[in-house]
């Protein structure tokens, strides 16, 4: 049984803010910040959006592109580090909103930025074992950076949903490999509004070690090299890290460009690799091979080798907005509005 992606859908809020605008408030040279991070702007959710609404948008876009009966969906997993409820699943609302309830299993995942890809792996197992016909894996976030913190220049919002199944797959997931250690580079304690991080510790021993180990592990196990792939997408906390990691692994810029969204959308955390993958599927052709490595702080990586099938030619991509479409009709915010949107302003209470 060839398990793969039957359909997919993406969603990114229309609001954006630039590092220059954020830097202006904190006395930071936003221009060089923007250049250093390779982020020209980041997406911002409106006050009426959260991980649940983003997940629903992505899941509905996914359903618009296929004829699958929602009642045939046996599992929904929403991966996020910004579930609106600490206790009460996001996935149940998604299940009701796409009319998949009640005969299915639902759970929320959290593994920093790779909870969405963990959800894909779980669905692969359930579909592959024959336990379910279809599973929905969603990676979505409305990540927060504390005011003035380095994360504030990148932490953004967005997500993508994948319908995992074994029939009429537009892309098969040929192999997946994960690499996991206990590495506290970034965390958020229960009840805390903003995450904390280990500064430069998030780089070499965390992101780079795990992404490269995950990537190499997958290349070895599939007996492939960078040149065998048409596209590559890596977790992208900014534009710089994935570019560097791609170079180290021997991927060329051309393979990376399509799935590299951080420069215009920012770091969508659990949404990052799923959105990158969605952007690639927006233009992929039969036979194209995709190499994807997600990274989650804490820390681990999930690597995937994917092959696009002939189904993609008859797959109605146009029935839902492409990632490019979602990156148009933008509205840029000033910092004050951004702070209001993100709940960073303390309100007087009665």
């Amino acid at each position: 049984m060839e398990v793969g992606i039957v359909s997919y859908g993406a969603y990114v809020p229309r609001y954006r803010i630039t590092p220059e605008e954020i830097g202006k408030v904190w006395g930071v040279d936003g221009k060089s910040m923007s250049k250093g991070l390779m982020i020209s702007c980041k997406s911002v959710p409106s006050p009426e959006e959260d991980t649940i609404t983003i997940s629903v948008e992505a899941a509905r876009n996914m359903m618009r592109r296929c004829e699958v009966n929602p009642k045939d969906i046996g599992a929904i997993y929403v991966g996020s580090e910004s579930h609106p409820y600490a206790v009460k699943p996001s996935g149940t609302i998604v299940a009701e909103a796409i009319e998949a309830a009640p005969h299915l299993t639902v759970a929320d995942f959290e593994f920093a930025c790779k909870a969405g890809t963990a959800a894909i792996q779980t669905c692969m197992g359930l579909v592959g074992s024959g336990m379910i016909k279809y599973g929905v894996a969603i990676g979505a976030d409305t990540s927060q950076g504390a005011p003035g913190d380095a994360l504030e220049y990148s932490a953004s919002a967005g997500g993508a949903a994948f319908l995992i199944g074994a029939e009429k797959t537009i892309a098969t997931i040929d192999h997946t490999y994960s690499y996991t250690t206990d590495t506290p580079d970034f965390w958020r304690r229960e009840g805390q509004m903003y995450p904390r991080h280990g500064g430069r510790f998030t780089g070499e021993p965390a992101y780079f070690k795990h992404v490269i180990s995950g990537a190499k592990g997958l290349l070895e196990r599939t007996n492939t090299t960078a040149k065998d792939y048409t596209y590559a997408v890596f977790h992208q906390p900014n534009g710089k890290f994935p570019t560097r990691v791609a170079k180290q692994l021997g991927f060329a810029d051309l393979q990376l460009t399509t799935g590299l969204l951080a420069p215009t959308i920012g770091n969508t955390y659990s949404g990052a690799v799923p959105l990158g993958l969605a952007a690639i599927l927006d233009e992929a052709k039969p036979g194209d091979r995709i190499f994807a490595v997600a990274y989650g702080s804490g820390a681990g990586s999930d690597a995937f080798a994917i092959t696009v099938t002939n189904e993609i030619d008859s797959y109605p991509r146009h029935k839902a907005p492409s990632v490019k479409d979602l990156n148009s009709n933008l509205k840029f915010l000033d910092y004050a509005t951004y702070a209001k949107f993100r709940g960073k302003i303390m309100l007087g209470s009665e």
């Binding site: 009426e48 959260d50 609404t53």
Partner: peptide, 20 residues
């Protein structure tokens, strides 16, 4: 139609979702 937060019952209460 799409789905969004309609309102929330304060920081600890239920979040209401619905059509916009």
């Amino acid at each position: 139609v799409t789905l969004r937060k309609l309102s929330e019952e304060g920081p600890s209460g239920i979040i209401h979702y619905g059509y916009k």
